[in-house]
Design a protein around this nucleic acid. Sequence first.
DNA 1: TTTATACCCTACGTATTTGGTAGGGTAATT
DNA 2: AATTACCCTACCAAATACGTAGGGTATAAA
Lengths: 135, 135
Amino acid sequence: MLSKKTQYAFRALEVLVKKYDQGPVLISEIAKKKKIPLKFLENILLQLKNDGVLASKKGKGGGYFLVHNPSKIPVARIIRVVDGPIAMLPCVSLYFYEKCKNCDEKHCGLHEIMIDVRDAQLAILEKKTLADLVV
Amino acid sequence: MLSKKTQYAFRALEVLVKKYDQGPVLISEIAKKKKIPLKFLENILLQLKNDGVLASKKGKGGGYFLVHNPSKIPVARIIRVVDGPIAMLPCVSLYFYEKCKNCDEKHCGLHEIMIDVRDAQLAILEKKTLADLVV
DNA sequence: TTTATACCCTACGTATTTGGTAGGGTAATT
DNA sequence: AATTACCCTACCAAATACGTAGGGTATAAA
């Protein structure tokens, strides 16, 4: 399951998508509109900024905004930044790979299955973008 | 990510699949063979028994065994019993549904996306069975 | 150059989940 | 009757999730 933090992230991004190319948006405005704890949201947006999804402007008239066109940012990227691995097992994760103990990947049926699941997940999550958040 | 507990469950089931129709298998035998903490494994097997996947025989010569043919038990069922929801959001879970707060499912882009992901996951996890664990 | 704005950063605190341990109870078989 | 092997409850420590607090710092307008 996605963490609450990640769900907050998507909510916040929804606001920023709607205001894309209309200048910076205040954290406080997003927090109020989406009922997200202000300081918690600050942390989330900062993470997204450090990853390059968002940028910010300081001082009066400042705020956060999307760096790229929403249709260029896959949903998968947001999940990886805020939540971490998408795969169901560490040993099939593309970005957070870890070998499993006491298990030979070459002869592990579960490994095979989870690779299939991962590919099925990514087929959607890499194709859908932030633009799809707004209906 | 699947919990370690769930990964243990699959390891244990692998043993039971290999010995299907050959009588009960000792918890201690499974624990030793798969290097799973004994008492922790006891708890896992009990859960699977309460769900009807496994059955047990007490007394000398007892142990655990699969109730049905391995090819009749989808991987998804094991995950739901031991780990819980498969979906990435509560609001798209078939077996553990929960409404999300401050979000109208009819107009939530993320909701739509996560339904697609869920369906893609289940297409595999409902089709693959315990028989596929053994290669 | 001052001052207010609004992002930036660190630390802390609580609740829940995860992973595991301990120990005895109970049913079945020999 | 005794042994075997599952059954059940309780407890515990570490990690993670979720959120709070408070000040620091860069920016831009006055």
